[in-house]
């Protein structure tokens, strides 16, 4: 950043070409150690994602009963895992915000909710596609499906609440309360839907005991999607920080 500014200000020196090159590299990989860490995380995630896609589509064995559509399982399960991880982070960050009143916890909660809502949507879509091919129906009111859908509604409501309150302390507190109450509601929802459907037999289509290559693919996919989630979380968090800073600057300029 500093170097870039000096270069633009200076008279064109003989080494201008190499300095422009250095600036380009800095723009690409970031100037500070933090930015470079994000770039590195992005690169690792990208490579892992390519390997995961190869493993899922090529390396994993074809399921005897379900055939090719079973491959969506390796996307669906990791994405669903990330969904619950994200909302656990929203919960923890919301508790921490109410306790410590540090706005960084609030940025964290909001970032996790934004990324988590996307992953919830993908969970619902991949699950629905898989259900269509295996169960023959896009949707069924199974406890897990129903709970995920309610979770989606709660966190879309959370994001709406955030956009209606703006970046105020009272908005952050209100959202933190929703982040906590919404998270506590999830197991209660699950239990009540399970009892509601208690007369229906539970349906499990994933046999326990996957072969080694399938289990390996699943584990690696879990790892990759967790990496992807961390990358998106970091970026969303930084966006929150920058936007808050921008709003403060705007407030100073206007007032």
């Amino acid at each position: 950043m500093q170097v870039a500014r000096e270069t633009t200000g200076g008279v064109a020196p003989p080494a201008a070409a190499s300095q422009t090159g250095a600036r380009r590299v800095r723009t690409l990989i970031g100037a500070t150690p933090g930015e470079r860490a994000v770039t590195a995380l992005g690169l690792v995630t990208g490579v892992c994602m390519l390997v995961t896609i190869w493993a899922i589509l090529v390396a994993a064995p074809v399921d005897v009963v379900q055939g090719m559509p079973f491959r969506i399982f390796y996307f669906h399960v990791p994405v669903a895992w990330v969904t619950f991880l994200a909302f656990f982070i929203v919960f923890v960050a919301s508790v921490a915000y109410l306790w410590r009143r540090d706005e960084r916890w609030d940025w964290m909660a909001r970032a996790a909710a934004e990324v988590g809502t996307i992953f919830t949507t993908v969970t619902l879509i991949t699950g629905s596609l898989w259900g269509r091919t295996i169960w023959g129906t896009w949707w069924t009111w199974d406890p897990r499906l129903t709970t995920t859908l309610i979770l989606w509604f709660i966190y879309v409501g959370y994001l709406m609440l955030r956009s209606y309150t703006g970046r105020t302390a009272s908005g952050a507190r209100t959202a933190a309360v929703l982040g906590i109450v919404g998270f506590v509601d999830v197991p209660i929802d699950y239990l009540s839907v399970t009892w509601w459907r208690s007369l229906h037999p539970p349906t499990t289509y994933v046999q326990s005991g996957l072969p080694a290559s399938a289990a390996g693919t699943l584990m690696f996919s879990l790892f990759t999607f967790t990496l992807l989630f961390s990358l998106l979380l970091v970026l969303a968090y930084q966006l929150q920080r920058v936007q808050t800073g921008a709003e403060k600057l705007r407030g100073q300029a206007e007032g």
């Binding site: 309610i150 509604f153 709660i154 409501g157 709406m160 609440l161 209606y164 309150t165 009272s170 908005g171 209100t174 929703l178 109450v181 919404g182 509601d185 209660i188 929802d189 239990l191 009540s192 839907v193």
Partner: peptide, 19 residues
Amino acid sequence: NTRARELLLPVLIFPLLVP
């Protein structure tokens, strides 16, 4: 606490009331 409380209340409350 928000600008659009009539809109927001039903949207927030229904998912929580499911149980």
